[in-house]
C-alpha cells in the first residue's frame, strides 16, 4: 500500500541562463509504515526533495501523491496534518524568543485542537522530555533536547508521514543514538512512515528498509538495505560512496 508516491519530480531555482536544476525527474514510492532513506553528498538534491514535498520550493514539476491523492501547487491544511518535517539544525529550527510551551501550543492551535494543555504535556512525554521542560526557552536546552522539541512539534498534528532532514547530523554521537532510538520507538507506536535524508550511510542503514542514492540531482540507484549491508550496490557512484563510508 503506497503512502507517498513521487513521480517525475523536478525542482529548479532561478530561470533562463541562471537556472539551476536541483532535482531531475526523481521517482520513488514509500509504503505505509515503511522507512525510506535518501543518501548523497552535499548538493545532490536530497534535502531539496523533502522541501519540494512540503511546498517550500517555488518551482517544481511532476506528481507528488500522499495516500493516492495528488497534492496541488498550494498545500491544503489537510496536507500539513498528514505530512510533517523535522529540520536538520535544531539550533535554527526553533524560534529564539518562543518557549517550548508557545511552540507546541501554537502548532496545536493552528491544527484546530482545543485540549491544548493536555496535549502539550502528552507530546513532551512522548519525546522523552517531560513536563518540566514546558516553559523553557531554546537557549535553556541542549542540542538533543531542542531536536526532541522539534520532533514533538512535528508530531503535534498527528501526521502519518514524517520527513526527516538529517535529524542528527548536528548532534554528538551519543545524542544521535538517543534521537534515533526515539524515532524508532515513535514509528512503531504511531505507525509512522519515514523519509529520511542523511549523508551517513550507517544511519540510513540503521533506520531504513530501502534507500535511494542521489548524485547531482538524480537518483542513480534504489536498493534495499540488505543490498547495502552486503555491499552489492550496482551503480559505480553508490559503490564509491559505500567504500568511502566503511
Amino acid at each position: 500500500m503506497t503512502m507517498l508516491n513521487i513521480e517525475n519530480l523536478s525542482v529548479w531555482f532561478g530561470g533562463g541562463r541562471d537556472r539551476v536544476d536541483a532535482v531531475r525527474s526523481a521517482n520513488f514510492h514509500v509504503n505505509r509504515g515503511a522507512s525510506f532513506g535518501l543518501v548523497g553528498e552535499s548538493g545532490s538534491g536530497k534535502s531539496t526533495i523533502l522541501r519540494a514535498i512540503m511546498g517550500l520550493v517555488p518551482n517544481w514539476s511532476g506528481t507528488i501523491s500522499v495516500d493516492a491523492t495528488p497534492v496541488g501547487k498550494k498545500r491544503e491544511k489537510t496536507f500539513y496534518k498528514a505530512v510533517q518535517m523535522v529540520f536538520q539544525d535544531p539550533y535554527a529550527s526553533l524560534h529564539p524568543r518562543h518557549s517550548v510551551d508557545q511552540v507546541l501550543g501554537e502548532t496545536l492551535y493552528l491544527h484546530g485542537f482545543r485540549d491544548i494543555d493536555a496535549r502539550v504535556v502528552k507530546l513532551l512525554d512522548d519525546v522523552g522530555l517531560g513536563a518540566k521542560f514546558r516553559f523553557r526557552y531554546p537557549h535553556q536546552l541542549s542540542g538533543g533536547q531542542r531536536q526532541r522539541v522539534a520532533i514533538a512539534r512535528a508530531l503535534a498534528p498527528e501526521p502519518s508521514i514524517l520527513l526527516l532532514d538529517e535529524p542528527t547530523s548536528a548532534l554528538d554521537v551519543s545524542i544521535q543514538a538517543e534521537i534515533l532510538n526515539l524515532l524508532t520507538d515513535l514509528r512503531s507506536e504511531h505507525g509512522l512512515t519515514y523519509v529520511m535524508v542523511s549523508h551517513d550511510l550507517s544511519v540510513v542503514g540503521h533506520m531504513c528498509e530501502s534507500l535511494a542514492v542521489m548524485k547531482d540531482g538524480e537518483i542513480v540507484e534504489i536498493m534495499d538495505v540488505e543490498t547495502l549491508r552486503n555491499a552489492q550496490a550496482q551503480h559505480a557512484y553508490s559503490k564509491k560512496l559505500l567504500a568511502a563510508s566503511i
Binding site: 551519543s174 543514538a177 550507517s202 542503514g205 547495502l228
Partner: peptide
Amino acid sequence: QGLLNSLPRLSEPRRKLDVL
C-alpha cells in the same frame, strides 16, 4: 566504550542503539 557502542554499524543491524 559507550561512545563506540552508540554508533550505528552497517555490519551489525540492531533495533535499538546503545545509549550512553
